[in-house]
């Protein structure tokens, strides 16, 4: 342990309360994976570009690689593993409507970027239930997918938005 000590961090991750003493330099992404066991948080670039580590913190999408764990103290975090909290109830196979749309439209291949996209998209559709294609493209600019070329992802989000339309 270094000379700067530790800070207490108490958060709720996908409905589970977690408290631990961490060094201030601990990144939220590492805290979620290593201390909380939230392995749905994928760390891609580690510098805020790829979007794979995106989680919901108190209802707002954040890059967990660009936050310190201590900053999230007292907060409520939802990862892709708890997507139902953002996206609605899952079906018998435990897939939420957004996940079903992604499957139907082949919107993932290797799946590494998918957790961040699902969390960010669930929040995006909450704020904007009927997005235009241009708004979807703008939203996805914060997420890099090397497999799909993004077209199936756009189609899945359009379908999910349609499915939730009144």
């Amino acid at each position: 342990m270094t000379g700067v000590g530790t800070n207490r961090v108490a958060i709720i991750v996908d409905g589970r309360a977690v408290a631990a003493d961490v060094e201030p330099r601990t990144l939220l992404a590492d805290f979620l994976r290593d201390t909380c066991g939230a392995v749905a948080v994928h760390i891609g670039c580690g510098e805020g570009t790829c979007g794979a580590c995106t989680v919901a913190l108190d209802g707002i999408a954040v890059r967990s690689c660009l936050m310190l764990a201590v900053q999230a103290d007292g907060g409520t975090i939802v990862t892709a593993a708890g997507l139902a909290a953002l996206d609605g109830p899952p079906d018998a196979q435990n897939l939420t409507p957004l996940q079903l749309a992604f499957r139907a439209h082949h919107a993932l291949q290797c799946g590494f970027c998918t957790p961040g996209i699902l969390v960010a998209t669930a929040l995006f559709l909450r704020a904007n239930p009927h997005p235009t294609r241009a708004e979807i493209v703008d939203h996805l600019s914060g997420h890099l997918c090397r497999c799909t070329g993004n077209v199936p992802i756009i189609a899945a989000i359009e379908a999910a938005a349609g499915a939730t339309a009144p």
Binding site: G51, I60, A61, V62, R63, L66, A120, D138, S141, G142
Partner: peptide
């Protein structure tokens, strides 16, 4: 500037 998620933070 940046993307929507980064702009919100």
């Amino acid at each position: 500037v940046a993307n929507p998620v980064v702009r919100r933070r």
